[in-house]
Nucleic acid binder design. Structure first.
Lengths: 163, 163
DNA sequence: AAATTTATGCAACATTGTTGCATTTACGGA
DNA sequence: TCCGTAAATGCAACAATGTTGCATAAATTT
């Protein structure tokens, strides 16, 4: 039997009932009637502490023990469905996820501009730019929208000036 | 040897020097110094006559003889690089292509809103809604943008009223 | 018509994501 | 605290979309 680099179930049970660190995340799950599992707590913790939306690879790198890819995808989709995180599809092969700011109450995070840096490939949420209703041609109705601005972020622009 | 449902090379050579139908498309290619091949002419003809951007499947369905998937992808990318068509990535698994309105001169088609119908899955270009420069935080610079509005198109809304 | 350059087809591979099914875990109640 | 049940996980396999290397075929140049 291999040694798994992860807490055993019993220790985990103690942890998520005692540690203050994860309390917020555990509360979100319990409040929504979602089962509290190691994978989910770890995943939400990572997203909670992230300053930028993360993609599947970013998340895997931060996990103490990588669960099956399938499980990760399933939990990401699950959280999106439960409005705890939101999904940002930048292009065909880059999908990021971010904790909803309003996860504590039931409200959805309003749609907003996402900035994608073509140098560091980081995504930045810009909620100050909400997405409006557009005046569409007769007969078209707007349900949801996506606005992605591609460019160079503040940090990468600073780097460029230096060199 | 199998019978291929496509014109043989010689007939093709005659065709693209005599037929008026494809002339415009052949002119675009020649003007840009791009080799005129059956695959390319057929592909551009399909995109030229399309009322909506088409995805790879749409295109394959309309081709008289489906070329290798690789060739299709290569030619699509090639045309995008040469600014003859533009690419619209709606989500992770739906990429469409559309002939640029301004393909006859060198100008690029300005960035514009794309509408995606969640019922019929058709994409509609809405050049009347150009994409502006956004007022981004200090240090961020905008290079390109993408605005996708998801909803129900005029035709599908009409269908809904009927039923 | 031959030489040269480019496009194509084929096989193989990469990435992202999904499905079915057996096993394990979480959690409410005895 | 243990037990039963429903849900989560891991594994294997598959699907969709797109890419790369290389040999062959076709398009242009001379």
């Amino acid at each position: 039997m291999e040694t798994v680099d992860r807490m055993p179930p019993k220790a985990f049970r103690e942890r998520h009932s005692k540690s203050a660190e994860d309390l917020a995340v555990v509360q979100i799950l319990k409040k929504k009637g979602i089962r509290v599992t190691q994978n989910r707590v770890e995943l939400l913790d990572i997203l909670k502490d992230a300053r930028h939306p993360l993609n599947q690879k970013d998340i895997e790198e931060q996990l103490s023990a990588t669960p099956d890819r399938v499980t990760l995808y399933r939990n990401l989709r699950f959280f999106v469905d439960h409005k705890i995180i939101h999904k940002i599809e930048i292009n065909g092969s880059l999908t990021s996820y971010s904790l909803n700011v309003s996860y504590l109450d039931e409200g959805h995070t309003a749609e907003h501009l996402h900035f994608y840096c073509s140098i560091c490939h980081k995504v930045t949420c810009m909620p100050q730019h909400g997405i409006k209703k557009y005046d569409l041609p007769e007969g078209f109705s707007q349900q949801s929208s996506k606005l992605i601005v591609n460019g160079i972020c503040n940090i990468c622009n600073k780097e460029k000036i230096k060199s």
